[in-house]
Nucleic acid binder design. Sequence first.
DNA 1: TTGTACGCGTTATCAA
DNA 2: TTGATAACGCGTACAA
Lengths: 344, 344
Amino acid sequence: LSKITIKDIAHKAGVSITSVSFAFNNPERLSEATVQRILEAAEELGYIPDPIARSMNTRRTGTLGILVPQPIFEIARNPFLAEFLEGVGEVCDTAGLSLMIVPPLEGSMRRAIVNAAVDGFLTLGLELFKATMVVLHQRGIPFVMVDSDPVEGIPVVNVDDEGGARAAMNYVLQCGHRDIAILGIRSDKAGHYQEYTGTLKRRVNGYLAALADYDLTVDDLHIRLVECPSTLKGGQQAFHQVWKDSPRPTALVAMSDIIAIGAIDAARRSHVQIPRDLSIVGFDDIPMASLITPRLTTVAQPLRRKGKLAAQILVKRLENDPSVPHHMLPTELMVRETVANLGQ
Amino acid sequence: LSKITIKDIAHKAGVSITSVSFAFNNPERLSEATVQRILEAAEELGYIPDPIARSMNTRRTGTLGILVPQPIFEIARNPFLAEFLEGVGEVCDTAGLSLMIVPPLEGSMRRAIVNAAVDGFLTLGLELFKATMVVLHQRGIPFVMVDSDPVEGIPVVNVDDEGGARAAMNYVLQCGHRDIAILGIRSDKAGHYQEYTGTLKRRVNGYLAALADYDLTVDDLHIRLVECPSTLKGGQQAFHQVWKDSPRPTALVAMSDIIAIGAIDAARRSHVQIPRDLSIVGFDDIPMASLITPRLTTVAQPLRRKGKLAAQILVKRLENDPSVPHHMLPTELMVRETVANLGQ
DNA sequence: TTGTACGCGTTATCAA
DNA sequence: TTGATAACGCGTACAA
């Protein structure tokens, strides 16, 4: 029904379509009277320029896309995204950009990338790495990778996942725990942590390194990796799964806070007391982590800063800044109340 | 740099541009050999159709917009959005749609609506009601209003805010509280709750109705309304503000969970024990509400269902379904652990 | 089966 | 100060 075009106005105001366009975009090139007349006609007709047609030759959409590896439905469940969005939002708001969440289309990353009418992409924890990179290049618009393995020529923003993970596991070991379940994030590499890439890989590497310091490995009977979705429910189910195990773990090392919090919740409902009966450490330090009781011991990563930085880089690229920064933001172990020291 | 167009392929494959288009969209109309040749050429050149040009004549973008009244930065802070998105996401995922978050552009709703290349809008708690409605109509694409005062001819999805608010306040009063601070959500109507519209108005009305049952009003010295942003920090600050008041409130009735949780957090840091020293009730029942300790007594609204329902309606409208449903979803008081009974 | 030509709504170029 | 007219890249009647 948005039938009213520049032509209708031109007709009504008795001018050419060029003049109408000028009236909006270059008023100083027209006589004031003409501009006035055109604007009035537009007002009367309730004219709104078609954003798509406009984008057609400005080559700009005014929105940037966040390419996420999971359906919106799923990704919205992880508070991780919200905080990341806060940072991205800061930049968008000041730059006057909108934000498009671009999930795989019918399971295909390619289709998603191809279809999205955006000026640039922020990729979040890319999966199907190689294939996706190719499409991204073909698409020919700037993109910045977040939480991915660094690639020559592409801006990347990462955090020190490995260092953080190592610190977390090391702390748990220091506290005397030797029966440990790692609560991993389920990916397409289900069960094969050796094939992990990006963030997952770096975190697992950190855990392994800390274990190695104690001559421990993950395939030990006492140390195991259990995968679950990075959601509250995922954490709850993971708790029930490992709690039946024997030997029963004395500590859970979760790869995300939301998993850890889910596990804590399930534990509480099962009258398992944290940290007396079971220790837990998370990863991310989402706001909820310090709001629950007991306060979650976890690895803090600067989620907002990460989002803001990545968005800033992308915006610069849109303005043809040729630099290709690679950032590695620090992580920090936040010792709080969910890990018991077995020595005491 | 996305220079590769349909023309380049036509040239390389030695066919017309029509054939190229057909090869992608209507392969059965071409000989298999030709299709093969074209696809190969496209593959080699790394061709990707331009989504904007395509939208230009399909009149479809494959994305729907969520029109929010605040900057992304701000709205991302409220877990409310995440849960709503979950519901919307369910629909998007199955319908193969992307999601665009559309905040005011340079403070202007109008500009935001005008610029967004989307197939339809979901409006969330519309502000500047009348003016915005006009632009939305002019834009000529379908939209569904969520959390707004119902309008003839426009689909609306609301929840029973008034009933929920009334139940919450009534419960607090039943528990014997008479010194109460309402923690309101700060809007552009700062301080003038009489001018509230939409959700805010309905909630305040609910509170007032419950108070009226006890012959109480909000301008009483003992009952007051304090406004703050609907964020964790907003709730923290609100706590400090009212805690200095005299008479000091024995109960806080917050218009959102995130405010309530912020207040609880601030209270805990000030060694004020909930609910012994201070009772608190929230609104929304976000997941965090039942995760914190003590578990938050609050009013549950079906956030996900709301998002899903609204999105479903919008998608139907995109398919030219002429029906204009008005929905009012139920709310429910969740009695948990943050309100003390003064009578006991 | 394939190609020509036009439409989509705007902005940009150039001439009048 | 204005107005034809050509892009922009793709879809699609219609003709060949």
